[in-house]
Amino acid sequence: MAAVPQSFRIRFDGEPAARELRAAAARGLFLGAEHVLGLSSEVVPLDEAALQRSGTASVDEPSLTAMVSYDTPYAVVQHERMTYRHAPGRTAKYLENSLNAAARDVQALIAAQIRRALR
């Protein structure tokens, strides 16, 4: 018996998959930003804790950009002035150093959310 030729037509709509992957990447970015915020909060200069309490993490999903910020009038000065004296365990460059230290963790958080979306 001869094999009967078969034909198939497959229509793939990748838009829903792309949307879900983008949402997963945004979730991973937010988790990463929260992680960096937590690390930086442990070393941010501390006097009355206003600077520490002003820390926030957010994500702009359309551009897939995560942000960690501190919102006080002196946040940038405290971050940049290496000559300021801080309490033990507190330091200038609190955000920059925390981001550099957490880079691999942030990448892993993003990758984990994308893997989860691909299941």
Rank of each mutant, 00 (worst) to 15 (best):
P62C: 04
Y94F: 15
A49G: 13
A108L: 01
A112I: 08
F30T: 02
S98G: 12
D60C: 06
R9W: 02
A102K: 05
R27P: 05
E20R: 15
S63R: 15
A49L: 08
S54D: 06
D13Y: 12
A2K: 06
P16S: 02
Q107R: 15
V77G: 00
A117F: 01
G55W: 03
A103M: 13
Q78V: 05
R22G: 00
Q52G: 01
E80W: 00
S63K: 11
L46D: 06
E80A: 11
A25D: 02
A111P: 00
E48Q: 14
S69W: 03
S41C: 01
L29H: 06
A26N: 07
P45E: 03
L51A: 12
S54G: 11
L39Q: 15
S58H: 05
L39K: 14
A92H: 13
A23I: 07
P16G: 02
F12L: 15
E34T: 12
M1I: 10
V59C: 12
E34I: 02
A101Q: 11
P88H: 11
L64Q: 08
G14T: 14
S58L: 07
P88K: 09
A3Y: 03
M67W: 13
A111D: 09
R11E: 14
A75E: 02
A103N: 09
Y70V: 04
S63F: 07
D13E: 15
I110C: 01
L64R: 07
A18V: 05
R119L: 09
S54W: 06
